[in-house]
């Protein structure tokens, strides 16, 4: 199994409407809403690269880029 490692996590603040869906359903509690009611990745080091925030964002505002890290020699 290849394990993904976070490369970049970007949130388009122009498109984000602050619904909080990404914040609520992030399994690692990486995200929160700032004082302008926009999503920010406050604890980026906790990100597990599941991309659920990107998939569930109704505003298409989140882009998570991961790089694959090989674990061991076999990949299946």
């Amino acid at each position: 199994m290849a394990k993904a490692k976070l490369k970049t996590h970007s949130i388009n603040r122009e498109w984000c409407k602050g619904c909080g869906i990404c914040v609520e359903f992030c399994p690692a509690k990486v995200l929160e809403l700032d004082e302008h009611e926009k999503a920010v990745a406050a604890r980026l080091s906790d990100c597990i690269c599941c991309k659920l925030c990107e998939l569930r964002c109704p505003d298409l505002a989140i882009d998570v880029v991961c790089e694959k890290e090989k674990e061991g020699t076999s990949e299946n």
Binding site: W15, K17, L55, C57, P58, L60
Partner: peptide, 20 residues
């Protein structure tokens, strides 16, 4: 964009995953 749907509307999630 940003689209016209309300904050938290599920239609954007359908658009998002239909494109995927």
């Amino acid at each position: 964009f940003p689209h016209m749907w309300c904050p938290g509307c599920g239609h954007g999630i359908i658009l998002n995953n239909l494109l995927r």
